[in-house]
Amino acid sequence: FLGHQDVLIEGQKISFIGELQADLLNDLPGSQILEAGGLVATPGFIDPHVHIMGGGGEGGFANRTPEINVTDIVAAGVTTVVGCLGTDGITRDTSGLLAKARGLEGISTYIFTGNYQLPARTLTGSVIDDIVLIDKIIGAGEIAISDPRSFQPGVEDLAHLTSQCHVGGLLSKKAGVTHFHVGPHSDRLSLLHKLIDGYPVPASSVYATHITRSEELLKDAVSLASKGAFVDMTAEDDTVDWVRQYASFGGDLRRITLSSDGNGSLPKFDEHNKLVGLSLAKQETLYQQVWACAEIPELGFSDALALATSNTADALKLHHKGRLAAGNDADIVLTDENQQIQHAFSCGKQVYCDGNILIQGAFG
């Protein structure tokens, strides 16, 4: 907590946090003042796993989920998203994902190259080339393991992929992270443990999601995080319970993030892997669950907020985001005592004002 502070935004950046002299603004022609007394300022949320062009399709073409609208993102307090593909990398591809990311004007967008399968389907023909040459591509994912929808890669396959991502990140000053979809199979995270233990791959470049499928998987994720990897929970109605369990197992709270899986499908399979149900993940669930986690006594407000801000910025090496600090991007959300968003800024541009979204997609 920084207490009562003034925040000065210049262009896209926060230039000052502290107490401004009253006459200073007179020397700044064209400046505007937003009186925000009584509101809480937080960094804009970073959602590292969003199906911005939709997902699904496991039940046939009619089960493909819709693309996301920028208004849905902003309404959830999110100012930065990372788009990904899921099971379907055929009728949806990286070029379409890149176009969609560029079309979400008014917020910061990045994407992963590839989808569930290996070898990865890429834009240039190479994972490392995609990361180095395409500005918005910061890594690969979501690569499926421990799942019947996976292409069942071995540890050698993962070592080759994560090494390409890591080196691509070094060359382009990007995250170079590999984002893993973890399914319900009993192998859980064994491949990722073998990868980190047996190969000179930086553990911090490994980022596993969907870790709340079982208590056994959660414990495995705690172990993986202890080695320096990042792990991610998909925000759902019971996220508070899972976060509490993660903490009780001794999980490193600096290595865990929350994501929405926004506009992805949430399929339900029976014991024979037959699809028996399908629902749509919503971006707003992330916002709701972060604030719910803030009520966990052993966690507290700062640690809960970090799940969608500073921790995520660290996982994705977005060091100019996720914290309210001079020099960082002016991604700021102002909420009232009921956690309702009143104002929001994305890279210095106001995108939310008095409960109204100020940016719209071309078609709403």
Rank of each mutant, 00 (worst) to 15 (best):
Q283W: 00
S214F: 07
G89F: 03
I17F: 04
G18M: 06
L278V: 07
L280R: 03
Q21M: 08
G89K: 02
Y116D: 08
S126N: 13
I256K: 04
T124K: 12
T124A: 02
Q152D: 14
C353V: 10
N263I: 00
F112Q: 00
D314N: 15
S95C: 01
I196H: 03
L104K: 02
L191S: 02
D147P: 03
P119M: 06
Q289I: 01
L85D: 01
K317P: 01
Q350M: 15
G60D: 06
V240E: 05
F363K: 13
I17K: 03
G364A: 06
T71L: 07
A313R: 05
L258W: 12
Y199N: 06
V290C: 05
P153L: 10
D241M: 04
A306K: 15
G176H: 12
P153Q: 11
G89V: 01
N273A: 13
A101T: 09
G139V: 03
T42V: 14
E105H: 10
V201C: 10
D314V: 07
G364M: 06
F230W: 14
N356M: 06
S226E: 10
I256F: 07
E58G: 07
G198N: 13
D303N: 14
G96W: 08
D238P: 00
D270W: 14
L25D: 01
D329H: 06
L192W: 09
A308L: 01
R213M: 14
H4D: 13
D27E: 14
D238K: 11
D303E: 13
T42E: 04
R149Q: 15
